[in-house]
């Protein structure tokens, strides 16, 4: 938790962290105003569903910029040696960094609560749909943050980390398109791996499926494991 606390403090004590928060809230607000709150009559549940659709996308996008600095910045500034020479294991280091990014993402999403609250006050939706929607956003966010953590762990600079993380996230977001271009078994593989089209959609509507939760947890675990391995591998250079 020590690493996570310092990292979180570094986010909120710098312009970088507040810039990300500002951009995230601006995009969320714009999408909510322009695309979710249309002039045509629609059910409150549909408005909320659209809100989570756009918020999820924004979360994945800013996740790339939040995670790019985790290890790459430490390497750029030469402070990685403090972590590598500490008694913390590589697993603890990765977990600390991941948790800091997730806490920051959690903070960003707490600040978006006013939008579902508006729908709740003016329409007919339940607490559960809001809670499940946010659970989905955070689960998808967790998978994206884990990818970014891995990208940062293998990169010497933040731009490269952002590029690798960004490509990876886009691949998982749009892999249902790849499914349309390929034959079995890749068709099924790409189709089931798609973040939005397959795994996140039920959360938008307030439904929790175990398979979706397991998928996001598995992707998170897999990429955090890769990040741990890449840190360990550097000791064998």
């Amino acid at each position: 938790m020590l690493v996570a606390r310092r990292e979180l403090a570094a986010y909120v004590n710098t312009y970088w962290g507040w810039t990300i928060i500002f951009v995230a809230l601006l995009l969320d607000g714009l999408f909510f105003q322009a695309l979710a709150l249309t002039t045509t009559a629609q059910y409150s549940a549909d408005v909320l569903s659209k809100f989570f659709f756009y918020t999820g996308g924004v979360a994945l996008g800013i996740g790339v910029f939040v995670t790019m600095r985790l290890f790459a910045e430490e390497r750029q500034t030469g402070t990685m040696v403090l972590l590598e020479s500490s008694p913390l294991s590589d697993r603890q280091l990765v977990l600390g960094k991941y948790l800091s990014a997730m806490m920051f993402m959690g903070l960003v999403h707490v600040l978006t609560l006013y939008m579902p609250a508006m729908i709740f006050v003016n329409g007919k939706i339940g607490y559960a749909q809001i809670a499940v929607g946010y659970l989905g956003v955070m689960l998808m966010c967790s998978a994206g943050v884990a990818m970014g953590t891995w990208a940062s762990s293998i990169s010497r600079n933040q731009i490269l980390a952002a590029a690798i993380g960004g490509v990876l996230v886009l691949l998982f977001v749009f892999c249902h398109w790849l499914a349309k271009l390929t034959d079995s078994p890749f068709k099924e593989l790409f189709s089931s791996a798609a973040f939005y089209a397959k795994q996140f959609a039920p959360f938008e509507d307030g439904r929790i499926n175990t398979e979706n939760v397991v998928y996001f947890v598995s992707v998170t675990f897999g990429f955090l494991l890769l990040a741990t391995q890449s840190l360990t591998a550097r000791r064998w250079e």
Binding site: R6, T14, T77, G78, T79, S85, S86
Partner: peptide
Amino acid sequence: RSAIGYLPEDPPLYKEMTVYEFLLYVGQLK
């Protein structure tokens, strides 16, 4: 590794911290 202290040629420092905060953090990290 807590039995070892290491200073590379370029000191590894979190420059946004005060000296006290930094040493308190590193001591706990170690």
